[in-house]
């Protein structure tokens, strides 16, 4: 689900930018096509970053940030800190 959403979101943004640029500049359908392609590329890059791959996420230069914690439907990856409850009342 997560991956699909990333692709779709990027596509939507790309197509929206393309569409409005076309309307403003009257250059249908070229910008639409161009930004559709760019949006698809951005979507795939997002997917790569989610899956923890190549270039690191947008701006993640240190590559020390958690990437595996964003994978769709797996139950919370043990991010439960400071568990010092001592029993129910």
């Amino acid at each position: 689900m997560r991956i699909g959403v990333e692709i779709v979101a990027a596509l939507i943004v790309g197509v929206a930018i393309g569409y409005f640029l076309d309307r403003w500049l009257g250059t249908k359908p070229w910008f639409l096509l161009l930004f559709f392609v760019l949006g698809a590329a951005a979507g795939f890059m997002n997917v790569f970053r989610v899956v923890g791959g190549l270039g690191g996420q947008v701006g993640y230069r240190n590559k020390s940030e958690p990437t595996g914690s964003e994978n769709g439907r797996d139950p919370a990856e043990g991010q439960d800190p400071a568990d010092r409850r001592n029993g129910d009342g």
Binding site: V5, A10, I12, L38, A42, V58
Partner: peptide, 22 residues
Amino acid sequence: IPIEVISYLSRPISLSVRLFAN
């Protein structure tokens, strides 16, 4: 750079669509 920009701008979309779609 346009790809990165699109990727950045897609953040609110993906954030909202993910929750809404689920």
